[in-house]
Design a protein around this nucleic acid. Sequence first.
DNA 1: GATGAATGAGCGTTCATTCAT
DNA 2: GATGAATGAACGCTCATTCAT
Lengths: 193, 193, 193, 193
Amino acid sequence: MSPRTEKQFEEIRLSKKALIQEVALELFAKKGYHSTSISMIAKKAGISKGLLYNYYESKEDLLNEIITQGMNQAMQMMDPNQDGQVTRDEMAFMINESFEILQTHSRFWILYFSLLPQAEVFEIVKDKFYSIYKLMISMLTDYFKKRGSDDPEAEAIILGSLLDGIYINYIFNPELFPLEAVKKKLIDIYCKK
Amino acid sequence: MSPRTEKQFEEIRLSKKALIQEVALELFAKKGYHSTSISMIAKKAGISKGLLYNYYESKEDLLNEIITQGMNQAMQMMDPNQDGQVTRDEMAFMINESFEILQTHSRFWILYFSLLPQAEVFEIVKDKFYSIYKLMISMLTDYFKKRGSDDPEAEAIILGSLLDGIYINYIFNPELFPLEAVKKKLIDIYCKK
Amino acid sequence: MSPRTEKQFEEIRLSKKALIQEVALELFAKKGYHSTSISMIAKKAGISKGLLYNYYESKEDLLNEIITQGMNQAMQMMDPNQDGQVTRDEMAFMINESFEILQTHSRFWILYFSLLPQAEVFEIVKDKFYSIYKLMISMLTDYFKKRGSDDPEAEAIILGSLLDGIYINYIFNPELFPLEAVKKKLIDIYCKK
Amino acid sequence: MSPRTEKQFEEIRLSKKALIQEVALELFAKKGYHSTSISMIAKKAGISKGLLYNYYESKEDLLNEIITQGMNQAMQMMDPNQDGQVTRDEMAFMINESFEILQTHSRFWILYFSLLPQAEVFEIVKDKFYSIYKLMISMLTDYFKKRGSDDPEAEAIILGSLLDGIYINYIFNPELFPLEAVKKKLIDIYCKK
DNA sequence: GATGAATGAGCGTTCATTCAT
DNA sequence: GATGAATGAACGCTCATTCAT
């Protein structure tokens, strides 16, 4: 009789958007952005192609929202306690935390690393990515400075690269990569007294 | 004009194939595999689309040959002198050599890293890649063992990951990444007495 | 609040229908029938797409009603005083009147002339249009007969065509067409003693 | 064995393009530009949709070429003998000629008049159209001046509009419009001594 | 009366691949 | 060996229309 309330519609919208995003993230990560068609996403989500366009303006818009949201989550989690101090424990925490994020959001990071080489598409998230990257490097630089390194920034960049390398190796071969051993060694190297 | 000999035909074939491969590698690296069409490759190589199919069974076949050949080259270059010894100088040489390869074959490695996330495509070169990877890790392990490391394999894997991380950072942001400084620091860390 | 009476509902219906028609006419005229979507109409009218289908069976039905109503209005306005006489003054009045209608209902006539070439759509209003057309031609013929023309019908048809030509030129290039000058000349030609 | 010669390919291309253009003009004129799909054109031309895009970049490009070519033809035919004189005979010739063009290229003119109301699409041919229009108006003005008209330009515009009106009435109702009678009357009015 | 989520057929377009020459 | 016309399946996307609420 009477139409659904605004709130009911809102709920439908939100849950459908979330469903689409989830399915899209899964497929984008598994098959790559270009190899995933809108039809596949719609079929897997159990909806019509048309409906998808009720929620997202375009395939690129869908990608955009997925990446932005993922980056924001990562940003939040990576955010330090802001006291200007990076203690040894905080470094250990940060390393652990980043591996945690990597594992719980593995599909997002697979997607992320798969987009990195695609200049046109990467453009979208470049800024957000560099914010995180710079924040991390500056924190690491700060840390190495306090430890008396004679070239703290180079060491920071090296640790940053090392983490990237580990992430990539782990993400694309999780069953072969000895993540725990590597993590332990890492903390051993970088957090020893 | 005498008719071309068998051998001359063979040469034409080989040079055409090489030309096509070169052009394809350039475009795949610059625009990505999916965004490069057969038409573009043919046009840039100055041949017809039809002729391309005289040399390659399909677009995927073309990709395969490019990747396989690139991997073989890398394999050859990475091959040590097999004397079972990895001296400090050899380690320095290896690091230098790998950066050399990265830069002289940058287009291949851009392509490589861009395909890595696409499981179906990566399948093709998986085996070859692991051969190289294991060879490298075993050499590094050997090296760290001789230096008295208490977990030489973990250290080897970490160095391997670090190199991957550096490669990726350099390859997708060559103008921002301080390659030389990092290389120097690397040799400093891993080749000091 | 007492429940709305039957009459009140009827009023709501009529005013909503009128609103939809007005908005649709505006958009059809500005953007063309095919380039105007139901969504646009609904949004601009401030109602839901669903409600529109409560009033009109289809997009075509909506178009039909707009055209039919516009034609009826034109018919009414064009209706002479039926005394069988077309005086010089009445001719001047008619010419003036037709330009008046053209300007006050310009959106309708833009739509009309834009649909004219689409046979299927024109079919709808063909009959109504011919009624008006024949009425006008017969009046003009009558007028030229009284003025002693030796081929009054041909002259009537020519004047009819001339008016059409002027209308079209004015409607699709209002800022470039010297309507007033042309109107004056027209009256000068056809209403001189 | 050997591939077709350049000339053979050229012939194929030209005849296919002509076929597509012919079919497209027919359908655009009969059903309207927006209501004619690429599929329809391809089916009617007996080719695949893909092939059409071998010859035309887009649907709009196809329309563009049709219109441009038609306008060029009209321009050529309308071109006066350039002696700066428009005699009575030339005026009669011009009127006759324009009716000739109208009839032999009726489909083109149907298309033309159907695009006129569609601002976005008309934009394409606006310039070409105004060239012709201005040329015609200036010739007519010239003619009326020589005949001693006190407002030659207004008369020219009126004659231009009259022709437009006649064209439209004839084109969209060829069986009802007394073209010959009207033409005769026209020449009678405008070419009498 | 009123909503907007949902559908599905169709749109214009691209492109790897085939094949007659 | 070499050509490019030709295909057809799939793409991203739009939109009139339906329907549960």
